[in-house]
Amino acid sequence: MLPKKIKIAGVNYKVDLKELMPLSELERNDCHFQMGWCIEPTTTIEVNSVMSKEKIKQTLIHEMVHGLMHESGLDSELENEEEITNRLSLVLYQTLKDNDFTFIRK
């Protein structure tokens, strides 16, 4: 369903779909749910496999935006990176879903 890798700004990111555990015992106790993460040092994106297909796709786009922010150097300059990433990834996901972008490869 998901690609095995995605190239972000010329860098290959491995994409793993698997069940993710909370980051900490505190999150586990608070019932936080880890949907995914982008691990920049290892250029890996992990997406939680227990979600619906739609949420899996949305989360992949969200983590890709984190990768874009990192590769552009913006992630170290922004205090509110997660909020910006959330907003951008939601509109990017819907734009990608609603349009045919095959013209880019022609």
Rank of each mutant, 00 (worst) to 15 (best):
Q58Y: 04
L2F: 04
I84F: 10
E83Y: 13
E82T: 10
E25G: 09
E27Q: 12
S24M: 12
E19F: 11
S89C: 06
L17H: 10
S49N: 13
G10M: 04
L92S: 09
L92W: 01
C31K: 14
V15I: 14
I56V: 14
K53L: 07
K4S: 02
M35A: 14
E54N: 11
T102V: 13
I56H: 00
V15A: 07
D100P: 01
E63F: 13
I56E: 00
Q58W: 07
Y93D: 08
D30C: 11
M51K: 05
E63W: 02
N12S: 15
V65R: 02
M51A: 15
F33V: 14
M64Y: 06
I6M: 06
M35S: 00
F33M: 07
K57C: 13
D100C: 06
K97V: 12
Q34L: 14
V91G: 03
N80T: 06
E54F: 07
L88R: 11
E27F: 05
V50F: 08
E82G: 15
S72P: 01
M1R: 13
T85I: 12
V47W: 00
E77T: 13
E81N: 08
S49I: 03
P41A: 11
N99W: 03
E40W: 04
T59M: 06
V47E: 00
G73Q: 15
L96D: 02
K57M: 09
L68N: 01
L17A: 15
R28H: 09
T85N: 12
